[in-house]
Amino acid sequence: MPQPSTRQRDMITIAWLFLGFPLLLIGLFVFFPIGYSLFISFFDWNLVTNQRTFIGLANYTRLFSDSLFWKSTGNTILYTIGVVPIQTFLALFLAFVMNQKIRGRSFFRAAFYIPAITSSVVTSTLFIALFSKQGLINQLFGLENDWLTNPNTAMLTIMANNIWTTSGYFMVSFLAGLQSIPNSLYEAARIDGASTWQQFWKITVPMVRPVTYFVLVLGLIGCFQVFDQIFIMSAGGPVNSTTTLSYYVYVNGFKYFKLGYAAAAAIVLAVLIFSANQVQNRYFKPEVD
């Protein structure tokens, strides 16, 4: 292979300079913490005294014998199973509706998207008020439930909050996908005899499959890591019904000062997310057109 010319060498150097800085940042703030977390999960490390003792896999065995760990894992999985399908379908449905020519379309598009970009503190506070004993939800449906203090409904409230905020975000992704579907396909379907509902299922849904995959993957990863809303709305309660794995990690690390143990739980969470994603890839990935 001929030696690259000076100009080519310059280009390569410049390319590395451009890449270098972001690589440094990502390495420092993403890859290093992940690797380090794995490292400290084998230690007993007190956050306040800063003393470290190597204990091998003891953190992991302790983890698997804590019933709260299993409850958190169960809560996390339940939460994900509840939120991901509903939020995906709702986002697609909203996008489909928002793609039709109806009055006030721009207003509705903004209205559905704004929760997605509103701070989670704001939306959580809003939902606390909505779902309180004398809040709007109870008034509308004539109920008397205190949603967030009832172990059976607290998780539902948090799921509702997340579905409401994240659907808007994914609606935008679906809208983009929808707009790449040529209108003539729908016209051909109309002539073939499809009702609007049938058009939705037989044309829209199959054709946005790549976007659906994207939304499912992001949704899954996000749901496994849900934290903000739980921290603000329920602090993991009542009776640990809303403690998810990420909240369990936080509490163990920063309230009980057991950094190594928390890191172990975090590694378990990471493995869980990775496995779930592999399953998704195997069975749900659409072929590249």
């Binding site: 003539s184 016209e187 051909a188 379907a189 002539i191 054709m207 057109d289």
Partner: peptide
């Protein structure tokens, strides 16, 4: 359209890709 007993051939064929 579906009740008019007509069929249409489009310029860009409008075949269902999937």
């Amino acid at each position: 359209p579906k009740d008019r007993d007509i069929a249409m051939v489009f310029q860009n064929y409008a075949l269902y890709p999937h």
